[in-house]
Computed example of a mutant assay.
Amino acid sequence: MYNTGFNDFLYSNRVLPYKNNEKWKQIKTNYKFRTREELKLHNSDIVRQMRNLEFNNGLYIYENSKGEILYIGKGVNKGVGILERIKSYSEKACLENYVPKNRRHENLMDLFRSSFGEINIYVFNIENDYEATAIEAMLTRVLNPVYVDKYLKNNI
């Protein structure tokens, strides 16, 4: 019931589809185990790609090389922006000796490490935190990312 309304809203406001949509910008990266020095170079490449976007607030979608949506999240400057989130996930997933702080981090790292290889990150600019939260929830409901299906469904 909700999915139809959410789907209609997301398409009518051009939030979906996220591929081949001028509102979504794509960042290409590759997840694999790296040394700290290699990770600095990897993150500087992400920073370079993000600079071209001219924004740091909004939503992001992680997609693996099979086209599976892994994770949907948001970042806003009041808290932590998109760039900081992406760099943080990259660091945690790609450092072999990273020890997760909690169950959520452990699940995210398990998810990202199981998808090592080419990762596409799609980012969407939204300045308003409330709007970003609502659209993130709708996207999660409609797109059903692997993280929700694998780790959260039994806990909801």
Rank of each mutant, 00 (worst) to 15 (best):
R103G: 03
E118S: 10
P17D: 13
L83T: 11
S114W: 01
V148S: 11
E22W: 00
E91Y: 08
I72F: 12
F124A: 02
G75E: 10
Y71R: 12
R103N: 11
I69L: 13
A93M: 04
F33A: 10
N56C: 09
I46H: 13
R36T: 02
E37S: 14
N102Y: 05
K28R: 12
N155E: 15
Y89K: 08
R85D: 10
Y89N: 15
I82S: 12
K66A: 13
N13F: 14
L108M: 14
E106H: 04
L70A: 10
E106W: 00
R141K: 04
N144W: 01
N3W: 03
N21F: 08
L39I: 02
R85F: 06
L53Y: 00
K23G: 13
Y11W: 11
H105K: 12
T140W: 00
E136S: 08
M138D: 04
C94E: 15
Y147V: 01
K87W: 00
E38A: 08
S65P: 00
K28C: 08
I27V: 14
Y89M: 06
F124E: 02
R36L: 03
E84L: 11
K66C: 05
R104W: 07
S114Q: 09
E63I: 06
Y151T: 03
N77W: 03
K66M: 04
H105D: 15
S114A: 05
L10Y: 06
M1I: 03
M138A: 14
N20M: 04
N30G: 01
N102R: 03
K101W: 00
Y31F: 15
I46Q: 08
K78T: 09
Y147D: 06
F55V: 09
Y122I: 00
E68T: 11
P100K: 07
Y130T: 10
F124I: 07
G5M: 13
H42D: 10
E118H: 05
R48T: 08
E68R: 12
S90V: 01
K153L: 14
S90W: 01
N155L: 15
L10T: 09
K150Q: 15
V15S: 04
I61Q: 07
L139Q: 09
L16K: 10
I61G: 08
V76P: 01
L108D: 01
M50V: 02
N144M: 07
L16N: 10
K74E: 14
G58N: 12
V146W: 02
Y89S: 06
G81W: 12
T35D: 05
S44G: 00
E96I: 06
L143A: 04
R113H: 02
K74W: 02
K40G: 03
Y147A: 01
F6I: 02
W24H: 11
Y130Q: 14
F116H: 08
Y2K: 15
N7T: 13
V76T: 11
I61L: 14
K153N: 15
K92G: 06
Q49Y: 07
L95M: 12
D45P: 00
L111Y: 03
N56F: 08
N7F: 10
G79R: 14
I27S: 07
S90K: 05
I126G: 04
N102E: 06
T140S: 13
Y147C: 03
